[in-house]
């Protein structure tokens, strides 16, 4: 049970990100979330999309270098301290967060979601579930 993040290699130069968004738009891919990580001469665009298969197909065809990384998707409780509670559980479970980013989802964007990259994803997911926190998978994200 995971969210399938697509990580795309991009050169750090004008128009590089646009080349990718242009391709995804033309392929009718809906992006749920996007996060950028950059080094001095290149970057990695991390995207969550509705149709992982179609997106990876389009990227491959266009000659992009990418991979699919399973990440942890969490629906954040809609209450004060919601994110804090999630982090507390991850901390207690000894899960080290490499990176994370958030997005809003649902018919009127009423839900907040967090994407986590952790080393032991399965253990982290189990710990969250044990505390009644909702862990979501790619299917859930696709249907948002």
């Amino acid at each position: 049970m995971s969210v399938k993040q697509i990580s795309v290699f991009l050169e750090n130069k004008p128009g590089a990100l646009m080349g990718m968004t242009d391709l995804l738009a033309a392929s009718k891919i809906d992006m749920r979330a996007l996060s950028l990580a950059e080094a001095s001469d290149f970057g990695i665009a991390r995207v969550i999309v509705d149709d992982v298969y179609a997106a990876s197909d389009a990227l491959k065809e266009a000659g992009f270098i990418y991979n699919i990384t399973p990440v942890l998707g969490v629906c954040i409780p809609d209450e004060p301290g919601g994110l804090h509670q999630v982090l507390q559980v991850l901390n207690d479970a000894g899960a080290n967060v490499e990176y994370m980013y958030a997005f809003l989802g649902g018919p009127s964007a009423e839900h907040a979601y967090m994407i986590f990259r952790v080393q032991d994803r399965k253990a982290a997911a189990a710990a969250l579930r044990a505390k009644g926190i909702k862990v979501v998978d790619q299917e859930h994200i696709s249907q948002l």
Binding site: A37, I44, N67, T69
Partner: peptide, 15 residues
């Protein structure tokens, strides 16, 4: 040129 074999999601690894 970046190759599929060399690419990973981990920035630190590539660096």
């Amino acid at each position: 040129e970046m190759t599929p074999e060399m690419f990973t999601d981990n920035l630190g690894e590539i660096a």
